[in-house]
Design a protein around this nucleic acid. Structure first.
Lengths: 139, 139
DNA sequence: CTAAGTGCAAAACTTTTGCAGGCGA
DNA sequence: TCGCCTGCAAAAGTTTTGCACTTAG
């Protein structure tokens, strides 16, 4: 399990202020089994223990943490963007189109992609999501 | 190049009325080299020759054509959804994070995915997009 | 002390929806 | 003619932004 302190250290090193709001957002990623969540999910969770935090602040900080490389942005086929810790191992998802559940899959297509398919394109990141029906919803 | 008539025929067979708006939308997909475009792109193009068509109508019809299986919806990491003809060969994209250009890539990761990775999940569709810098923007 | 961060409210942007009138079959 | 379709306008859902106040360092 990832620790909070090293993340806070990263903020300090970049001269970014460590506010209670930021600590709450970071903590919320460490405490969940739900690996990826939307800004609203995160806000709803934090509000329980920090009633005055605004959704705007959550959005602003998620963006900042993404730019710092601490969070990764996921596009799971919904209108909302989801976030997860980049320290969480690289993986992709099986997303159920009926119940919305997303299972992780330990397979990355990039390893099979030959250089000549990509030519002079300089890869920074990629997405690979599989949509369909999960075991429960098939029944 | 795909023809307009067979597409119109499909609408008729389903009892869907063939309006000038629908013909304009379908035609716009046949005439372009830009394979995938957003609702707004399509609307802007059609308005030139059909000044009264509304964006709402474009949205409604893109949705319908997607449900009929004539169009495919693409999530290219933008807020806007893009569409392309499903008859256009299956492929994925190299998307430039600087200029937004998307090149097609003839490689599909699904062929390398072993059944046991997916287990009982029933695959319906998938997305695979590679983000980075295109040759021009690397310079 | 002061620049960065926050909360509030309003705006921006994409997409959806209700409704009354229009038009294809 | 009749019901599907369209345009208009308004709403909905997510994310961004301007501004004045607060606060971490």
């Amino acid at each position: 399990m990832q620790e909070l302190q090293p993340l806070i250290q990263q903020l300090k090193e970049k001269g970014i202020k460590v506010t209670p709001q930021r600590q709450a957002i970071l903590s919320s990623f460490l405490g969940t089994t739900n690996k990826h969540r939307s800004a609203e999910d995160i806000h709803l969770e934090i509000v329980k223990s920090f009633p005055t935090i605004s959704l705007d602040t959550v959005y602003r900080n998620l963006g900042m943490l993404r730019d710092l490389g601490i969070l990764r942005e996921l596009n799971l086929g919904e209108r909302r963007v989801h976030y997860e810790l980049t320290s969480h191992s690289h993986h992709h998802h099986l997303i159920c189109t009926r119940c919305g559940d997303a299972q992780e899959i330990q397979y990355c297509p990039l390893q099979f992609l030959e250089q000549d398919k990509v030519n002079k394109f300089k890869i920074q990141s990629h997405s690979f999501e599989i949509f369909g029906l999960c075991e429960k919803c098939t029944k």
